[in-house]
């Protein structure tokens, strides 16, 4: 025990510097920290996927995680709503505070957590039910509404905020799986925001979409950041540059660098970040 804690303190030093940078970021963007992760390690069985990740995610804004495939950015994202629990043999250690509650604590009720931290996945995955049912499902299972009118209101406003309402208002009873890929992804966003989450996680939400659908989603993300804390994982550096205010670069399971998006893309401090954004590694 002693040796491991010593190791951890030793290892803590480089992230401490980034944590300091995070505080700086927070003061720069003028918003408080919503999620703060410290020394997060993730193992898949024997294999370690994340090494001592410490990062602060600011309230009301878009934080982008970038990095080459297999760098652990999605793994870290899934720590934030405990979706890693569903993966056999996955072990998470460290502290992740969401409003002073440690969400990495195994005793935490994940159902409640996931109601507060919504998620949009890489591939659009609407339920094979009607468009209305897709959006209504979350509020319904959480008992958020007391009447049909109230539920209607949530469904319509969620679809409106996801920019989908005008396109589907005449066919809310049609299956959500019959929509186009971009529409399906917006439906998934509507479904995620219908439960009024505080944090919205997006795992490469545009990787399965064409450029036009991508542009629509990016616009949508830009609008949603006024009300939600958004964390987005993306393969596209241009996308990170376009939609995010803060960017974190992961490489081989380590958080290499984080900071204001502008600074990461124009003046990275680390050589690896420089190499990645200029296309030399990846």
């Amino acid at each position: 025990m002693d040796t491991t804690s010593q190791e951890q303190t030793k290892k803590f030093e480089p992230p401490a510097a980034t944590a300091a940078a995070a505080v700086e970021t927070a003061t720069q963007t003028g918003s408080k920290t919503r999620v703060s992760a410290r020394d997060v390690n993730v193992h898949y069985g024997e294999k370690q996927a994340l090494f001592d990740v410490s990062i602060d995610i600011p309230d009301r804004g878009v934080t982008a995680f970038i990095g080459p495939s297999g760098c652990g950015k999605s793994t870290f994202l899934r720590c934030l709503n405990r979706m890693n629990d569903t993966i056999e043999g996955c072990r998470v250690t460290g502290k992740i505070l969401l409003d002073d509650v440690d969400i990495a604590n195994p005793d935490l009720d994940v159902v409640e957590l996931r109601a507060r931290v919504g998620m949009v996945f890489q591939k659009p995955n609407p339920f094979p039910k009607s468009i209305y049912e897709n959006v209504a499902y979350g509020p319904r299972i959480h008992g958020m509404t007391s009447s049909k009118d109230e539920l209607d209101e949530i469904v319509y406003s969620s679809l409106r905020r996801a920019g989908l309402y005008e396109e589907v208002k005449d066919r809310l009873d049609q299956p959500g799986t019959g929509l186009s890929g971009g529409q399906q992804q917006r439906l998934c966003i509507a479904r995620a925001i219908a439960t009024k989450p505080e944090v919205l996680l997006m795992d490469e939400p545009c990787s399965a979409l064409d450029p036009i659908a991508t542009a629509i989603i990016e616009e949508l993300i830009d609008e949603l950041r006024e009300n939600f804390t958004i964390v987005i994982v993306t393969h596209s550096m241009q996308q990170a540059a376009r939609v995010s205010q803060k960017t974190a670069f992961f490489h081989l399971g380590k958080l290499i660098e984080e900071g204001p998006t502008e600074q990461i893309f124009t003046n990275p401090l680390d050589k690896k970040t420089q190499d990645y954004i200029t296309g030399r590694i990846g």
């Binding site: 709503n81 996931r114 109601a115 996945f121 995955n125 339920f127 979350g138």
Partner: peptide, 21 residues
Amino acid sequence: PPSLRQAALGLGASQTQTVFH
């Protein structure tokens, strides 16, 4: 498809709700 289970779990459905719904 596992994506369906993830969709339901990600919304905060319990394991039982995911399976039965």
